[in-house]
Design a protein around this nucleic acid. Sequence first.
DNA 1: TCAAATGTTTGATC
DNA 2: GGATCAAACATTTG
Length: 263
Amino acid sequence: MPELPEVETVVRSVAAYITGQSIEAVTLSSHRVTRGDRDHTIQALVGSTISAVRRHGKQILIELDRGLLYIHLGMTGNLLWNASPGKYSRAVFTLKDGLLVYNDIRQFGRVEFYPETPPHLARVGPDALRIDFPSFFARLKKRQGAIKPLLLDQSILSGVGNIYADEALFAARIHPRTRAGRISQERALKLYRQLQATLKLAIQHRGSSISNHVDARGDPGQYQQMHAVYGRAGEPCLVCGSPIKRIVLGQRGTHYCPRCQRA
DNA sequence: TCAAATGTTTGATC
DNA sequence: GGATCAAACATTTG
C-alpha cells in the first residue's frame, strides 16, 4: 500500500487516535513481519506510552516514552484503529482506549521495537518533502542511470514509490529512461517542484487506493482517480491524446506518454 | 495457468 | 568500491 502520501495519511489518521495512550498488551503473529525474539519485543512494548507518531519516507515511527515502534507497511500493510483482528492481522496492540491492528496480506511489512534510532533510518536518504533543491540536484548529478529507478532508490530520496515516480516524471515531462546525471538544472528544478506538488496533492486526497490502501478508519484514498499515467497503459494521454505506454524499467512497470515525455 | 501488484533486501555481475 | 540488475519474499487478483 505505501508510498509517502499513503503513509502520511495513515500516520495522520492513526496519530489522532493513539497519541498519549499506553500499550497494555501486544500480540505478534508473524515471524516475517516481526523479526527476532517476539517475546522480548512484547516485553519491551507493554507498559510504555505513545508520545508521538512520525514519518520518514515510507517508514512509520511511533515514539514511546522508552524506545520506538518501527512500522513499515511493505506492499500490503494496513494500520487500523479499532478494527476486528482477522486472518491477516500480524500485530495487535491493546491500548488503553482501543485496539491498534496491523494487517498485512503479503507480510512484506515490518513491525519492530528499537530502544533507539532504528538501523533502517541510517540507510535512507532525506524525505522527499523535506529535501532542498541543491541536495536533490547534487544527488541526481552523481548518477548515470535512468531517472525513474533513481527516484525509487530510498537511499537517494525516501518516500517516492512506483506510482508517484511515474506521475512526477509525467508532470515534469521527463522520459523515465533519461539519464539522471544529464538532466539540466532547469529541468531538475521542474522535476523537484512537480514531485513535491504531486506528493502534496496526493496527501490532500488521502493517497491512492490501488489495491488496499486505507487510513486508520479503513477509508480509502481518492488520488487514484487523478493519475495521469500510472495504470493507464493504452488509454489516451490527458494532455495530447497519445496512448500511454507501459515498459518495464528496473523491474517495475513504468508508465509514460511517448509524446509528452520524449527521450 | 500466467502475469502483475503501492517495496526492500540480498547476491551477482560488470 | 560503485552502479546496476535480477531474484526472492507471500498472496491475491485479473
